[in-house]
Amino acid sequence: MDHSDEVPSPGLMEAPPDPHAAQHVAAHVRTYLIVGATLLAFTVITVALSYVDFGLIFSHLFRTNLSEAQGRKANVAVAMLVAAFKAGLVAAIFMHLSAEKRLIYRILYFTVFFVLGLFWLTYLAWYNPIVR
């Protein structure tokens, strides 16, 4: 955190090299393999889950009768949760977002907000019209 009063000379604006970079990376190789295996496992899981009738399961769980359409929504929700988990793993580990600079996070905050806006309002426009 430097104050703007202390103006660094152009050469000093470069970040110092990280002498332990190679060791850090070596330590991560194992993580990458584990994450890859987890992703493969969850691919199988999500395929298997799609043949489970969550409508039925949720009907028992919440003691209400879900129609087939509602049951499908339950399956969609489950599949999207699994996909979000997988995507989160890819983003956090493979794309190094678990330890990225604040600048990158800021760019992504905006993006996530607007993309959610795009979905939410598209949904709302469908949900709340006067005439279809």
Binding site: L121, A125, P129
Partner: peptide
């Protein structure tokens, strides 16, 4: 953006 679309008959909430 939807203020360009008042005439499309969107619902009151939107």
């Amino acid at each position: 953006w939807a203020h360009h679309m008042w005439l499309t008959g969107m619902g009151t909430a939107v």
